[in-house]
Every structure is written in C-alpha cells, then in structure tokens.
C-alpha cells in the first residue's frame, strides 16, 4: 500500500509542479495589491486561492485525460486513490503557505512595496484551516460526480461553507455567547472540529468514489 500511495501522491505533485511559476506570480500580485490597498489577510487569500487552484487543476487535468480510469485499473484501490488525493491536497496547502510567506518575506526585502509586512503564524494557521475546510468540502463532490460536473457544484459548496461559517458567527453574536476560553481550549476545539470535518469528508469521498462508474 505504501508504494502505491507514494506513487499516487508523487503523480499529483508532478502535475502540480507545472503551475508553480504561475502561482508564484499570482501570489506576488495578490499580496502586493492587497497590502497596498490596505485590505486585510493578503496571505490567507493568496494561500487559499493557490491551494484551491492547485487542487482543482489536478482534478481537471485528470478528468480531461480520463486518468481516473487508468489509475483505477492499475494495481491500487479506490481507497488509496482517495487517500492520496487528500494527502496531496493537504501537502499543497502547506506548500502554498510556504510559498506565500516566502514571497511576502522576499517582497519586504526588495523596494517593491513598503506596505507589505511579513506573514504571522496566526495568518498561516488561518490560511491552512480555511483552505483545508474548502478542500474537505470540494473533494467528496469531485469523487462523486467527477471534475466536469463538480465545476458547477463547487461554487455552491464553497458558498454554503462560507454561509455556514458566517451564520455560526452571527448566531454566536446574537445569542451573546461568551467564548472567552483559554487558548489551549481554542486549539483543542479547532483541532477536534478540523479532524471531524476531515474524517467525515474523507469517508464520504471513499463511499462516493467506491460506487462511481468509471
């Protein structure tokens, strides 16, 4: 299992490698323009945008060349195919964080824009959480219907995720719930919620992909 899993993740990385330069440019433009116009969270936006672009471009590439059919016929299982996609997507988010913070750091050293400040740990963690939650929302849809049909559904999925987060925050405000808890409790809560979402998304994707006709 280990070898095939590595091969599947490697294959995803190989495809994602093709768009590195484009994404570096995208991140640079986004960070400079957002920082220059005083908008908040340029690193979060750049990381989330790049992660989703990367994940979805691999899915589209596979869909276009019917690669799922090939890999489902090779000595591997659908469970491994799904697991590899989740691992490579999480890897992509980490690489995106690394790239966006590196781009920002390099910009602060160059006389390009004085308004760019280096990324903070909080921004990096926020970017990771938001990007991974969006990926957790997208991948089950992709494994259920394939890339072409998921294109139409993913906007709805992302909108629902955004609305749920915004709704929760509004609800907390409206009910006047006091969320003053210690940082450790916050970390534990977020970790538990993130794990539950990730695991739920993964199990759903496995179930969908197992019954999908290729």
């Amino acid at each position: 299992m280990k070898t095939t899993l590595i091969a599947l993740v490697y294959k995803d990385m190989l495809l994602q490698k093709r768009t590195v330069f484009f994404l570096l440019f995208f991140m640079l433009m986004l960070i400079v323009s957002m920082s220059g116009s005083g908008m908040s969270s340029p690193y979060v936006t750049a990381t989330v945008g790049a992660s989703l672009f990367w994940t979805m471009s691999v899915c589209s590439y596979e869909g276009f060349y019917k690669m799922e059919k090939l890999f489902a016929s090779l000595p591997t299982t659908r469970l491994e195919m799904v697991l590899a996609r989740y691992l490579s997507s999480l890897g992509v988010i980490l690489v995106s964080i690394l790239l966006s913070t590196s781009v920002g750091w390099i910009v602060t050293l160059l006389p390009i824009s004085s308004s760019v400040v280096p990324a903070t740990i909080i921004e990096a963690v926020t970017a990771f959480l938001i990007a991974s939650i969006l990926v957790f929302g997208y991948l089950p849809i992709y494994f259920k219907v394939g890339y072409l049909r998921s294109r139409m559904l993913n906007i709805a999925v992302f909108a629902v995720i955004g609305l749920v987060i915004a709704g929760l925050s509004l609800l907390i405000d409206a009910l006047g719930i006091n969320l003053t808890v210690t940082p450790l409790v916050w970390v534990l809560l977020i970790l538990i919620l993130w794990t539950a979402l990730g695991l739920g998304s993964f199990l759903l994707a496995v179930r969908f992909f197992h019954s999908r006709a290729l």
Binding site: I6, A7, Y10, L14, L74, P75
Partner: peptide
C-alpha cells in the same frame, strides 16, 4: 515511470 511504480 509513473505507471511502472504500481507493478511488482
């Protein structure tokens, strides 16, 4: 090279 990694 991509395909060969799957076969024993």
């Amino acid at each position: 090279n991509m395909v060969k990694q799957f076969y024993s």
